[in-house]
Design a protein around this nucleic acid. Structure first.
Length: 959
RNA sequence: GCGGGGGUGUCCGAGUCAGGUCAAAGGAGGCAGGCUUAGGACCUGCUGCCAUAGGGCUGCGUGGGUUCAAACCCCACCUCCCGCACCA
């Protein structure tokens, strides 16, 4: 196929000439673009290609504008998925292996070697590199690396030591969903069941039992403590009495186990059945009154502490359970409870909610007709009340110091107070069961000694906001999102136990987490060229070396001596970094906004001075395949390589760019790629015929029109590219300009003019960032010197903009439109079409009014007075007055921009223009065309249409 | 729940910040014709409804408002998509 041939040809030529290898050049302004390195547990797919095509088109655009552009590339190997995948191969997971074999097309002999994660990553990296090159990305490959290379690790070590030295790293605890068998956190993708479930923090209210022990009742609504009437214990469940830290707690057996994992020391003293506790009394720590423990079979001993306090006024379950006991006193006997006392228990109303009276729980139970505590509707009732009370609830006067406050506002404060006063503690639990892939039920574990990046630090956040405010964000709407993320970000655990990556330099056994080691690596691109060329060994890359390169700190001779790197090389590296930094543009899919892209800003502000903070971020949507998310397991995985083989690189790039803009998700459909491919081929053919046939030297108004139009196109394409509106830019460059050419050629007919060649040169340039190979080929065919990739980006030539020429053509277009309209309405098959152009005096008045409207309000009587003095209006004043008032009205309704355009066009020689287009019009309508001036005496005007003519709108008569 | 982004013709999608040239760009699809041995290629025209004169009607999620004028501004509502963490 000829497309593939020219692609290969030009890729080789580019590589041979090294035109994308960018070196510092003090005479040229630099532009540094980056693309987040792809994770190498699979081949490069069209999702990557989408973002990369946008980056590349931008890079090529900037290069043609004369910037010294650096577009480097690297590969992400750090993390769990690669090791996980490799282990699955090692274990012989057939389903998984089949996907690698069939979707990724990994040959059998390679597949076997995938038991080594490094091998697997190497394989995919090699495959992906080929794909990226075939896509024609204008990358400087000398700077390539992967994230577990020892030299890169030294860089990350420097990064983390520096962060720590600056106080951005802290140690703390952190709850995770944990598999007790695998002894590791169970992320969403590792789960058999319970996707999306995260630990919930329960407040434990410590109710004192008579015998100096506590009953920690778990709740999400600690504010309801002011409405407690009793505690529920499941009489049939097993509880334990245990020493928790330095107190005696009674909890369910399960809860004791959980607490052990949450940083508490737990020593179990004895087991007991729940019924042993029922009937006893406890003390409410806020009201200090004695309340009873009642049997509650609805209490789930597996959940939280297995102890629940009862607020029947505001919790449907509590009310239902209490009602049950009150209505069935016989159940109380076996616990030695006096039914009379239980009957005396009255709900305590303590939250005022709009739309409910005193006891919301009781009301909702009635309303939904919930039968008892086992009715499934009880759950729904609970949800409704919780929501309602949280959003619009206000604490009543019996809530001591919190009275009058809204539930929403008081919650956090109250929890804090209670903890401080020793009334409350907390624990984590899962709201729904989570089961690990290994089929073990998960728990919540509080990881000790975790290392965190202090993204919560208010000063740091402020700096990041400052950085953001200086940046350009494409599209603008994404800025809001960034701001929200900056606010929302908390401590980020930056180290893990498993997976590939760089060990935490000060704490062996921990590996720097993958999102955390990928934040400032763009700086590494700037120096990796030298590292590779001079074969600099990892151990030579000391802290001092990096401090010199990135900060210019230290005495170079000393550093050279100590590190073993030549001073000249050190200087070169420093120069390289200083030249390229900061990053001018980073482009990624929107999924990275809440993590990577924001971290990217955070860490730059932490480690670099403001002049090295990133300049711009482009965000785009996530690629879908026929409207669905791409997943290997779903069988809709589309590798870049396959697409290029089928449709060619240029078609892929253009189809991707045309598929969406802004943050909308692009949708990949093969038919689109096929269509674009056809378009590109016929574009190529079109250019060939022009090159062959363009002979005429003529330059008439149509040529002027084409040139003028093209100037606008240049401006539009350039402006849209600048704003990263790649699709709009390509749409104009490919479709709109094509339509201009079509109009011109149809309108003109006959032999092609030489001017087409000149305009074509501009057109090809405008397309070159998007479809570089085919444009390069056309460029070459036009005997231009290589390469179009380095050719100068077109600039609009103000002098070629010709409002009159454009006015002429839009007149023709409007005339056609109106004629068609009449034909459609009358269903006439035209024999003869007459056009009558407006009289000179009409034009005069029209222009006068336009002119005046520029300065402000147009006064009718003022104009009339002026007109009365005009010679040539004598005898026509009445008619002129009528006309004037009509025009004044019309102009009043015309937007300013349009009025300016009309003024620029000025008085059109309408008769001439239409006369000139006669042939074209006759051909179009298959009729005889006659043009008269309204003033002509001998005009053919049987229906007296001529007098209806208006400037820019000739009258029409058809028969 | 919290946060972010949307809803435009058969479909995709521009237009909304700065209201008026907006029955609404461009593309795709459909229809008709041309070119061709043929074509999923290419070219030309049409593609909301009504209308024997360039007009009228309906129309940009729904309802209301502001205005001489609303896809665009304001209010309310409905609805869809995405992210919520230690994971790339």
């Amino acid at each position: 196929m000829f497309l593939r041939e020219i692609e290969r040809k030009w890729q080789e030529a580019w590589e041979k000439a090294g035109i994308f290898e960018a070196n510092p050049d003090s005479c040229k302004e630099k532009f540094f673009v980056t693309f987040p390195y792809p994770y190498m547990n699979g081949p490069l797919h069209v999702g990557h290609a989408f973002t990369a095509s946008r980056v590349d088109a931008y890079a090529r655009f900037k290069r043609m504008q004369g910037y010294n552009v650096l577009f480097p590339w690297a590969w992400h190997w750090t993390g769990q998925p690669l090791t996980g995948a490799s282990q699955r191969v090692a274990k012989g997971d057939e389903a998984f292996i089949r996907v690698l074999r069939e979707v990724d097309g990994v040959p059998e002999e390679e597949l076997r070697k995938f038991v080594d994660p490094n091998y697997m990553a190497t394989y995919y990296t090699n495959e992906s590199r080929i794909a990226a090159k075939r896509a024609g990305f204008s990358v400087d490959w000398r700077r390539e690396f992967n994230t577990i290379m020892p030299t890169f690790r030294k860089f990350v070590e420097w990064q983390y030591n520096s962060l720590r030295a600056k106080g951005y790293v802290t140690k703390g605890t952190h709850p995770v969903v944990w598999c007790p068998k695998c002894k590791s956190p169970t992320g969403d993708h590792d789960r058999q069941e319970g996707e999306g479930v995260t630990p919930e923090e329960y407040t434990l209210i410590k109710f004192k039992l008579e015998e100096d022990a506590y009953l920690p009742a778990a709740t999400l609504r600690p504010e309801t403590i002011y409405g407690v009437t009793n505690i529920w214990i499941n009489p049939d469940a097993t509880y334990v009495e245990a020493r928790v830290n330095d107190e005696i707690w009674i909890t369910s057996e399960k809860a004791a186990e959980k607490l052990k994992e949450q940083g508490k020391t737990v020593k179990i003293k004895r087991k007991l059945k729940g019924r042993e506790l029922v009937g006893k009394n406890f003390e409410n720590p806020v009201a200090k009154e004695k309340l009873p423990i009642l049997p509650g079979w609805f209490v789930d001993p597996k959940h939280a502490t297995g102890i629940v306090y009862s607020v029947p006024a505001h919790a449907p379950y509590d009310w239902l359970a209490l009602k049950d006991l009150q209505e069935k006193p016989e159940t109380l006997r076996e616990f030695g409870l006096d039914p009379e006392n239980v009957k005396k228990i009255k709900p305590i109303s303590m939250i005022k909610v709009e739309g409910f009276s005193e006891y919301p729980a009781i009301e909702i139970v009635k309303e939904l007709d919930v039968k008892d505590q086992y009715d499934s509707k009880a759950e729904e009732a609970t949800k409704i009340i919780y929501k309602k009370e949280f959003h619009s609830g206000v604490l009543k006067e019996n809530c001591m110091e919190y009275s009058g406050k809204t539930v929403q506002n008081v919650k956090e404060i109250l929890i804090e107070d209670f903890r401080r006063r020793g009334i409350a503690d907390f624990m984590y639990d899962l709201p729904q069961p989570v089961v690990c892939r290994c089929l073990t039920p998960c728990i919540v574990k509080v990881l000790q000694d975790q290392w965190f990046l202090k993204y919560s630090d208010p000063e740091w956040k402020e700096k990041v906001r400052e950085a953001l405010s200086r940046m350009k964000i494409y599209p603008k709407t994404a800025t809001q999102w960034f701001l929200a993320v900056i606010d929302w970000l908390k401590e980020w655990a930056c180290a893990r136990r498993t997976g590939l990556g760089t060990p935490l330099p000060w704490c062996p056994g921990w590996i720097i987490e993958t999102l955390s080691d990928s934040t400032i690596y763009m700086a590494f691109y700037t120096i990796n060229k030298q590292i590779r060329r001079h074969d600099i060994k990892p151990k030579m890359l000391t802290k001092e070396v990096f401090n010199y390169i990135f900060y210019g700190k230290g005495i170079i001779e000393k550093i050279a001596l100590k590190s073993g790197i030549d001073t000249k090389i050190l200087e070169e590296m420093r120069k390289e970094f200083s030249y390229w930094y900061p990053v001018d543009l980073r482009v990624s899919a929107k999924e990275l906004v809440p993590n990577h892209l924001t971290f990217f800003i955070f860490q730059h502000t932490a480690l670099f001075p403001p002049e090295h903070w990133p300049k711009a971020i482009g965000v785009n949507g996530m690629l879908m395949i026929k409207g669905k998310q791409m997943h290997k397991s779903k069988g809709n995985f589309v590798p870049t390589k396959t697409v290029i083989e089928e449709y060619g690189a240029d078609a892929m790039r253009c189809a991707l760019i045309l598929s969406s803009e802004g943050m909308d998700d692009p949708d990949w459909r093969n038919e689109n790629a096929r269509d674009v491919k056809n378009k590109l081929v016929s574009f190529y053919n079109f250019t060939q015929t022009i090159n062959e046939n363009a002979k005429s030297d003529e330059i008439g108004h149509l040529e002027k029109w084409l040139m003028s139009k093209l100037q606008h196109r240049i401006i539009e394409v350039t402006e849209n590219l600048e704003e990263m509106k790649m699709r709009t830019a390509l749409e104009i460059a490919l479709f709109e300009i094509w339509n201009d050419f079509r109009w011109y050629m149809n309108r003109r007919g006959g032999e092609d003019t030489k001017i087409l060649k000149d305009t074509l040169k501009i057109w090809v340039k405008l397309l070159a960032p998007f479809a570089p190979h085919i444009c390069e080929e056309i460029w070459d065919g036009m005997k231009e010197k290589p390469f179009i990739s380095l050719a100068e980006w077109p600039k609009a030539n103000e002098e070629s903009i010709n409002a009159q020429a454009e006015g002429n053509e839009s007149l023709i277009k409007e005339v056609i439109e109106d004629t068609l309209n009449i034909l459609k309405a009358t269903k006439i098959t035209p024999q003869k079409i007459c056009y009558y152009t407006a009289s000179q005096w009409k034009w005069k008045i029209y222009m006068k009014i336009l002119e005046k409207s520029r300065k402000g309000e147009v006064k009718l009587n003022e104009i009339m007075r002026e007109l009365a003095a005009e010679e040539d209006l004598r005898g026509k004043l009445k008619e002129a007055a009528k006309f004037t008032s009509k025009v004044v009205q019309e102009v009043g309704r015309t937007p300013e921009k349009r009025r300016e355009t009309l003024l620029k066009i000025g008085i059109l020689k309408e008769k001439e223009v239409i006369d000139d287009a006669k042939g074209f019009l006759a051909d179009k309508f298959k009729a005889c065309i006659i043009v008269f001036s309204e003033d002509a005496r001998d005009k053919y005007d049987p229906k007296l249409k001529a007098k209806l003519s208006v400037p820019f709108r000739p009258a029409i008569y058809i028969e």
